[in-house]
Computed example of a mutant assay.
Amino acid sequence: MKLQTTTDAVLVLEDGTFFKGKSLGKIGTTGGELCFNTGMTGYQEIFTDPSYYGQIVITTVSHVGNYGVQPEEVESDAIQIKGLVCKEFSHFFSRNTAEGSLQEYFEKAGIVGICEIDTRSLVRYIRDKGAMNAIISSETTDVETLKDKLNQVPSMKGLELSSKVTTGQMYELQPTEKKFKVAVLDLGIKKNILNNLVQRGCECRVYPYGTSFEEMEAWGPDGYFISNGPGDPAVTTEAVKSVEAILNVERPMFGICMGHQILAQANGIPTYKMHNGHRGLNHPVKNLITGKSEITSQNHGFAVDAEALKNNPNIEVTHINLNDNTIEGIRVKNKPAFSVQYHPESSPGPHDSEYLFDLFVEMLEKSKNK
Rank of each mutant, 00 (worst) to 15 (best):
T5P: 10
T6Q: 12
T7S: 15
D8R: 15
V10M: 04
V10P: 05
V10I: 09
V12Q: 05
G16R: 13
F19Y: 14
G21A: 03
L24M: 13
I27F: 09
G32D: 01
F36W: 03
F36G: 02
E45D: 04
F47D: 00
D49P: 06
Y53C: 03
V57P: 02
S62F: 10
G68L: 05
Q70H: 15
P71E: 04
S76W: 02
A78C: 11
I79A: 03
Q80R: 13
I81R: 06
L84R: 11
V85Y: 01
E88R: 15
F92V: 13
S94C: 08
Q103V: 04
Y105T: 07
F106L: 07
I111M: 13
V112E: 01
G113D: 01
G113F: 01
G113N: 04
D118F: 12
S121T: 14
V123M: 13
N133D: 09
N133E: 08
I135G: 08
I136A: 05
E144G: 11
K147Q: 11
K157N: 12
G158S: 06
V165Y: 02
T167K: 11
G168P: 07
Q169S: 10
Y171Q: 04
L173N: 04
Q174Y: 12
T176Q: 06
K178H: 03
F180T: 02
K181H: 09
D186R: 13
L187W: 03
G188T: 01
I189R: 07
I189E: 00
L197P: 03
E203I: 11
F213G: 05
E214D: 15
E217L: 15
P221R: 08
G223M: 06
G223V: 04
I226M: 07
G229L: 01
P230Q: 07
G231Y: 00
D232G: 06
P233V: 00
V235L: 05
A239Y: 01
A245S: 14
E250Y: 10
P252K: 07
F254R: 09
G255C: 10
I256F: 01
C257V: 05
H260L: 02
A264W: 00
A266K: 10
N267F: 11
K273G: 02
M274Q: 09
H275W: 01
N276V: 05
G277D: 00
V285I: 11
K286A: 01
T290I: 02
G291T: 09
S293E: 06
Q298K: 14
G301C: 08
D305W: 11
A306G: 10
L309S: 13
N312Y: 11
N314M: 13
I315W: 09
E328D: 15
V332T: 08
V332K: 13
K333Y: 11
P336A: 07
E354D: 14
Y355P: 01
L356N: 05
F357A: 02
F360L: 03
K370F: 08
